[in-house]
Design a binder for these strands. Structure first.
Lengths: 233, 233
DNA sequence: TTTGAATTTTAGGCTCTCGTAACTACCGGA
DNA sequence: TCCGGTAGTTACGAGAGCCTAAAATTCAAA
């Protein structure tokens, strides 16, 4: 008795797998076993086993040795988790004074425990926010999510003015550092210089142009931006 | 490698068992296997198995065929869960518009997922409340809990004025009905009449004396009160 | 004091999810 | 085309936590 059916009982583990697979699929291409194992911090054979079960449950399609892709049903379940995670993160920062670097861990546990009703009440209390504190879009109740295309700060040409839009929520230390630079989603800045050979980028915040910030290449690759004003010339 | 040790990793199941056992011990006498099984909706052999593990972990003492008693460590862990449960219930009703009859189920899941920090932030946001929406005392962070002695409404003599103090949070339907009578912790009333043979009690709310309420015996046994004014004579 | 009902425990099994070890498939380079 | 390294899978096993059936214990009533 398997196959696609309504009202699956999803365990915590299954919810974690679906969300991880969804996030891996966002980088194009099917999610690979080792990538899933890495994201969930389990051994690859554990993933093979779970993938088999999820595939039998109709939540994803598995091509052996090639990777997995969520089915419509699996994607929906994954987006439900993503919505929960991001609503919780937003609630904790807005209403309970959490810093943006500490909400991820808490949300990671709460997303499995909250009811749909609680999520809707939180969203309501927040005025149905569209983005979480890290700039990630919050899927709607019915699983629609804004598709975005950003440029990493590392790829914004010198001279352009850009706005920071989104940062990964997974690394607390990185978030603290970014915050200490005065950066958060919505902040705009001009790219003043960049050293070659994957060297650092220098920016000047629009709000405080006098204070320049130097940002290493690796970090600059993780800061997702939109260009607001292209350099003339 | 067992015995009392700091920093146990308590599973959800273990947390449930400890809380259930704590609550059963409140009615005096050690908690019995079947009572625990009933409270958690599992079969008695499951309880025997878990009791063995908890006893080996030093969280309770087990006298075969006689029942179990929490150790200091077990009691502390149980009270931590009780605090979580009641803070969450209070938060949901006060800050997110939940009714007092629907919070129990939600808190039952959240109590396993929230961090100590989140509980303290919720308590802070609420002004460190001493009672939950059902009148139950909230244990302090260090596991101190107010010991109360109440009289069931069914035992309050006719003519006395009493105040409702506490109601079980477990039965949503009962809570809805109690609420529909205008009753909640803090409401006071005069006991106007009581029929014999475990018959109903008639009360008149102090706030609206004209409107009398008739309350069946079973319900009256579950309404925990303090007598505010004893009948003269 | 004996017996029988009720309660508790033991025995044995199942599912879920994880792990390690061993085997298989894929793919790029010689 | 072959060969080896990497990635993926299968085989097997462990622990948690639940179950049913059977055995053991308790206790009260005859």
């Amino acid at each position: 008795m398997s196959g696609p059916s309504k009202g699956q009982v999803l365990t915590r583990s299954i919810e974690d797998y679906l969300k991880a697979i969804y996030e891996l699929e966002q980088d194009g291409s099917p999610a690979q076993t080792s990538a899933i194992a890495g994201a969930l911090d389990v051994a690859p054979p554990s993933v093979s086993g779970m993938v088999k079960r999820l595939s039998e449950a109709g939540l994803l399609q598995h091509v052996p040795y090639r990777g997995v892709q969520l089915t419509e049903e699996g994607r929906k379940a994954a987006l439900r988790m993503v919505r929960r995670h991001r609503v919780v993160e937003t609630y904790l920062t807005t209403k309970l004074g959490y810093d943006w670097d500490s909400v991820h861990e808490e949300a990671e546990r709460l997303e499995h425990a909250v009811s749909d009703e609680l999520i809707e009440r939180m969203a309501m209390a927040l005025g149905s926010p569209r983005y979480d504190p890290h700039g990630a879009p919050i899927p709607s109740r019915d699983g629609a999510i804004e598709q975005q295309s950003f440029v990493a700060l590392a790829d914004v040409p010198v001279g352009d003015v850009a706005e920071l839009r989104m940062v990964s929520d997974k690394d607390a230390e990185r978030l603290r550092f970014i915050g200490s630079l005065g950066l958060k989603p919505g902040v705009s800045f001009e790219v003043l210089a960049r050293q070659p050979f994957r060297g650092p980028t220098t920016i000047g915040l629009t709000a405080a142009p006098s204070k320049e910030q130097v940002i290493g290449h690796e970090l600059a690759e993780s800061l997702l931006c939109v260009v607001v004003e292209r350099e003339v010339g």
